[in-house]
Amino acid sequence: MSTAGPALEVRNLTKHFGRRAILAGIDLTLDRGEFLLLLGPNGAGKTTLLRVLATLLAPTAGEASILGYSLKTDPTEIRRRIGFISHSHLLYRDLTTYENLRFYGEMYGVQDLDNRITELLERVELTHRRYDTVRDFSRGMFQRLAIARALLHRPELLFLDEPQTGLDPHAVDILDGIIEELRADHTFVMVTHNLERSLELGTKAIILKNGRIVYDSADRPDPAELKATYRRVCVSGDGDECD
């Protein structure tokens, strides 16, 4: 069931907070192995869409299938197969690096957990901080550890919500390196405001505005067309900004 079909299939997805429609009928298909860039001005609904697809928010209406599993009926199966990196690192400040990863590893039922932790800590260059409480970590170290947390259970699909926000160049290089390594056999959905950097990565791009898709590249986006559309959407005079 999970190995066939597109990575994402979204039909008429809506999300309301009270009377306000944050997502107003999203239709989207993403094949496995693709890298989707999710762009748009602040308040367009990008993060909400990501949170709905990651099972953190229930949709008000519509259907979504993620890696072949229904968002409504199989959220647990979806959670086993996705990773999520946001600007919050989702780590417990009073636990050590190892304790944080062990906790999440146990929750995901990761096999051979200690070796997996060692392997990931080496990859994000935090081996020397393995037994340190994370409270005093810098923003970059937190985000590197958050990357390790999100990859612990070897997810097939990664949701990235502005993962480069506040990172130092070294942490950005590590993140880029990991994304490059994983691109061959993983699917990505990334919310970003950094169009220049992300254009190299994206195999598909959509621009959201007021909860609707106003641009869908359908295929690998043409950089000039995407930039022009992005600029037009973001400065259309209704007060929205793209940063």
Binding site: T55, L56, R79, S88, H89, L90, Y92, M107, G109
Partner: peptide
């Protein structure tokens, strides 16, 4: 703190 509840809810 740091939206750890999201981290917990993302686990299966």
């Amino acid at each position: 703190d740091e939206e750890c509840l999201d981290g917990l809810l993302l686990t299966p």
